[in-house]
Design a protein around this nucleic acid. Structure first.
Lengths: 242, 242
DNA sequence: GCTGCTAGTTTGTGATCACATTGACACCGG
DNA sequence: CCGGTGTCAATGTGATCACAAACTAGCAGC
């Protein structure tokens, strides 16, 4: 259990900042999913998580159900829950929804963006590029996510953000799988275009940049790469990503 | 408790079709929310639901958390959960997301629609009109929902449907409030246009019809109507809709 | 050698209990 | 008459327990 990753990951509830155990477990699992530490196909057991985090099964069950609701996990007929596997069909749907939702979110964020935000976004983008250059997968995934969400959260936090988060939760384990098996080198992004559009307040250009960023990011997986990934997920019964 | 509404609402788990109590509770509450039996602002207590449905608090808590995840309910700082109140801001966001998601879903459904589906949709639309003419609010809400979802479920069930459902869960209590306080007479829909576009396989016309249906449906609430609805929800501590 | 059955283990589910926190309401002092 | 305070009920939370279903493994029989 050498993968105790995050800031708030002290011991079970050492922090005690008016946060419930269930909420804590939920955030732990969500973070692990978003950073791809749960590989698609991996089955998640209730007592396993409970003992891993040092809590009772009750709050774990609630956290798992929340994640199932958000489509980050799925339940099978056996009542077992696991990280959903990716299919081409689902991948296409996710891309389409990402385009639809994230262009809308970006457009809505545009009026609220100011110089400080732009500066912050540029810094994040620079860190993304840096992570790509150095081949730092974890840092790339973190910054990439931070960049996108830093835009979207400006406009409409209440309605759009949860939906986009749900899509990312479905997307991320697969993304992690791809970048760790195919490499981070082929990653292309349109962050610079998006930032310029944001600065010029150009709605159309922003939409185009976001759409291109989503579509080109992983849209061009070849047939053989799909088969390769399929083979990887097939043997995934356990064991988190390296 | 004279509002035991639905088909599957026998006694607690008299059916026993390999369905968990938690799932049953979830569906019960979801149905009640979608049909507007929980008015915005109403606070929902755990033990209250538990005794109402004749089960223990445990599965109720899980069902509530699922609904919170789907934004059908919200938790306050007090840990109390309630049906969220609608704001103009949120309403606008919901409309924009509905347009974005549902036009996409309709477009994706188009290739899969055949004569049987069209016939079924026409029948549903006729029932919607009939319900409007007779002022049958409950029937209207049911058929209206059935009409839309019958289109969307054709195309992409896996990714899009849950998102659309989440939006409808946020939308429906308010919709019920509106039609029951302002009347069902002013309701306009573009179902006929959508059906024609579907038949002609006209993507652009379909998108336009869906967008118009969403935007015109409740988009034109006047200032005084908003105030009126606000006054209604303000006094909503308890008591389901009539 | 392979299939089918059976015992033991694992896992999810739900009820119950104990505890902490919140909210309500009456009471008391000003 | 009003505001503060103490008490009690109500509520959410989480651990534990008992039970049922599912999976595993081992053995017998064909």
């Amino acid at each position: 259990m050498l993968d105790s990753v995050d800031s708030t990951a002290l011991h079970p509830r050492a922090d005690n900042g008016a946060i419930t155990v269930q909420e804590w477990v939920y955030r732990q699992l969500k973070e692990r999913i978003l950073t791809g530490q749960f590989v698609p196909g991996r089955s998640v057991t209730l007592r396993g998580i409970a003992t891993m985090l040092g809590v009772s099964p009750t709050p774990v069950r609630e956290a798992l159900r929340r994640l199932v609701s958000e489509r980050a996990l799925e339940v099978h007929g056996n009542r077992r829950v696991s990280v959903p596997k990716m299919t081409r069909r689902k991948f296409d749907d996710l891309c389409a929804v990402r385009v639809s939702l994230e262009t809308l979110a970006a457009e809505r964020a545009m009026p609220h963006v100011d110089a400080d935000h732009l500066e912050r976004l540029r810094r994040l983008d620079a860190e993304v590029d840096e992570a790509v250059d150095n081949g730092e997968i974890n840092r790339y995934l973190h910054r990439h996510r931070e960049f996108h969400f830093s835009i979207y959260e400006l406009g409409s936090a209440e309605v759009l953000m949860p939906l986009i988060e749900s899509v990312w939760l479905q997307f991320s384990p697969f993304l992690r799988l791809v970048v760790s098996h195919i490499g981070v080198d082929y990653i292309v992004d349109r962050h610079a275009d998006a930032l310029n559009a944001l600065e010029r307040q150009d709605h159309a250009a922003l939409r185009f940049a976001i759409e291109a960023d989503v579509r080109e990011g992983l849209g061009s997986l070849t047939e053989s790469e799909w088969r390769d990934l399929d083979a990887v997920t097939r043997q995934a019964g356990d064991a988190p990503a390296p």
